[in-house]
């Protein structure tokens, strides 16, 4: 891997944007921030091709005849962004062999939502990673099918209310836990994998740069706050994003397929060394309407504790994977 690149805020701010204003994503949506940060981390953004799965990001950025994309961009369907990307990568490889494409092969970056990644697109993603195409898949994880109106996905957290896992009189939101997508992709053993949080932007861009420079597939899992679906005031977006990591719900780590090592990074590394600084999940949950039923009309201490225990169990598992003794 490359030697460490640590950009300053000014360096990042000065880099051009490739998703332009005027798109119709909601105020408070983290997805365009994730796109911006991703493209600011690419060493040669002018030589980039973007692929987008169906979902909020695709729909809200390309309402014909407008487009927010200042890079070549393709949307094919919902479940096949990774397969589409394999075709793009393969074509440039062949065109290069034939001498038709004379430059370096473009950096191919995919953006997919959690529905398009955890669920309907998992097969195509797994296939593309197994085949070893060199592309970076950026999952913007807003933890439900937001574009179709907040339905639960394999990523929706336990107890969260969505329109298909409502908080009812008997069932208090989603009964299942979130699928560990990062570990699933890491288990392919040939992809660089990292979790990121747009609030912790420096950790974010450093990892994306590693991802695009890795000679093989790479996968970036970005938590993507959604004020409409999670039910919070748009102004709280980055605060809630920060809490996702500070509570250890979305810890920051990376997996290096060369060394087969998991590493805890950034704020999560700080929390690994200072466990007393970990914030209780309740602080995160209580800001969001999707968890309101845990607090009103009666406080569900049992469920809050179940979530807290699970988060700590997974955090301990990660610490173990990353070589921390606990």
């Amino acid at each position: 891997m490359q030697k460490k690149w640590v950009p300053t805020p000014i360096e990042i701010a000065k880099k051009p944007d490739y998703i332009l204003p005027g798109h119709r994503l909601c105020a408070g949506c983290a997805a365009p921030i994730i796109v911006k940060l991703t493209l600011k981390a690419v060493p040669n953004p002018e030589n980039t091709v973007l692929v987008n799965a169906t979902g909020c990001l695709e729909v809200a950025t390309t309402i014909f005849p407008y487009t927010a994309w200042k890079r070549p961009w393709i949307h094919n369907a919902f479940e096949n962004a990774a397969a589409t990307a394999s075709g793009v990568v393969a074509a440039f490889k062949a065109l290069k062999k034939k001498g038709v494409w004379k430059d370096e092969e473009p950096t191919v970056i995919v953006f997919g939502g959690d529905g398009g990644t955890y669920d309907i697109g998992l097969q195509a993603l797994s296939g593309a990673i197994e085949r070893g195409h060199k592309f970076t898949y950026v999952l913007y994880d807003n933890e439900a099918y937001m574009n179709t109106g907040i339905q639960r996905s394999g990523s929706t957290p336990f107890a969260a209310a969505t329109t298909t896992s409502p908080a009812g009189k008997v069932i208090p939101g989603k009964p299942q836990w979130k699928k560990p997508i990062g570990f699933i992709i890491a288990a392919h053993m040939n992809a660089y994998v990292a979790t990121v949080n747009p609030y912790y932007w420096q950790d974010f861009v450093v990892k994306v740069r590693k991802a695009v420079e890795y000679d093989g597939p790479s996968f970036i899992h970005a938590i993507s706050t959604c004020d409409r679906g999670w039910r919070f005031d748009p102004s709280l977006s980055m605060r809630i994003s920060k809490l996702a990591t500070d509570t250890c719900l979305h810890p920051l780590w990376e997996f290096d397929p060369e060394t087969r090592e998991f590493k805890i990074t950034g704020q999560s590394l700080y929390l690994a060394k200072n466990p007393d600084k970990i914030i209780p999940v309740e602080e995160y949950l209580k800001l969001q309407g999707r968890f309101r039923h845990l607090f009103k009309p009666v406080r569900r201490d049992d469920l809050i504790k179940t979530i807290q225990d699970r988060v700590m169990k997974e955090w301990k598992y990660l610490l173990k994977l990353a070589g921390f003794e606990s």
Binding site: I74, A77, G87, A90, K93, A94, L95, G127
Partner: peptide, 26 residues
């Protein structure tokens, strides 16, 4: 041949990869 042969994991992905490849100009 100098063709990139992509042995995909399904026909859905075969056609999807063809879309990506053809859009790339191939």
């Amino acid at each position: 041949v100098r063709t990139e042969f992509v042995s995909v994991e399904s026909e859905h992905s075969a056609m999807s990869a063809c879309v990506g490849a053809a859009a790339a100009g191939g």
